[in-house]
Simulated scan of single mutants.
Amino acid sequence: MQPLESKIALLIDADNAPASKIEAIISEIAKYGVTNIRKAYGNWKNSSLKGWEDNLHEFAIRPVQQFEYTKGKNATDAALIIDAMDLLYTQTLDAFAIVSSDCDFTPLVMRILTSGLKVYGFGEKKTPLPFVCACSKFLYLETLGQDIDPETSKERGSTRKTNKELKQDTKLINLLRRAIESTNEEDGWSTLSSIGSHISNQASFDPRNYGYKKLSALFESIDLFELKRKNNVIYVKSKKKPRTSEKKQRCSENP
Rank of each mutant, 00 (worst) to 15 (best):
M1D: 11
Q2W: 01
L4N: 11
E5R: 11
L11R: 00
L11T: 00
I12A: 03
A14V: 09
D15G: 14
N16Y: 04
N16P: 08
A17E: 06
P18R: 09
K21W: 02
E23G: 01
E23D: 05
A24C: 06
I25T: 01
I25V: 12
I29D: 07
I29Y: 02
A30N: 14
A30M: 11
Y32S: 07
T35M: 15
I37T: 08
R38T: 10
K39T: 01
A40H: 03
A40T: 06
A40Q: 04
N43K: 13
N46T: 04
S48P: 02
S48H: 15
K50Q: 12
E53M: 15
L56S: 08
H57R: 08
H57C: 10
H57E: 12
E58H: 11
F59H: 14
R62W: 05
F67R: 14
Y69G: 14
T70P: 04
K71F: 07
K71R: 14
A75I: 01
L80S: 05
I81G: 01
A84W: 00
M85W: 07
D86G: 03
Y89F: 07
T90F: 03
Q91C: 04
D94E: 10
D94A: 00
D94V: 04
A95D: 01
I98K: 10
D102A: 05
C103N: 12
C103V: 09
D104K: 05
F105C: 00
P107K: 00
P107A: 03
M110D: 02
R111Q: 04
L113N: 05
V119D: 01
G123Y: 11
E124K: 02
K125C: 04
K126P: 11
P130R: 07
P130I: 05
A134N: 08
A134D: 03
K137C: 12
L139V: 14
L139P: 04
T143K: 15
L144C: 11
L144K: 15
G145E: 07
G145W: 03
Q146A: 02
Q146P: 08
D147T: 08
I148K: 06
D149L: 10
P150N: 02
E151G: 08
E155V: 14
E155K: 09
R156C: 12
S158P: 11
T159N: 10
T159V: 13
T159M: 14
T162W: 06
T162S: 15
N163H: 09
L166G: 07
K167Y: 02
Q168Y: 09
T170P: 02
T170G: 03
T170H: 08
L172N: 09
I180Q: 12
S182V: 06
S182P: 11
T183F: 06
T183N: 14
N184V: 08
N184G: 12
E185L: 07
G188S: 03
S190P: 04
T191V: 04
T191G: 04
T191S: 15
S194C: 15
S197K: 14
S197V: 10
N201T: 11
N201M: 06
D206P: 11
P207Y: 06
P207A: 13
P207L: 06
Y210K: 03
K214D: 05
K214N: 11
A217L: 13
F219S: 05
E220Y: 08
S221R: 08
D223V: 07
L227E: 15
K230D: 06
K230A: 13
N231C: 05
V233E: 10
K237M: 06
S238P: 08
R243I: 00
R243E: 09
S245H: 03
E246Y: 00
E246K: 06
R250T: 00
N254T: 08
P255C: 03
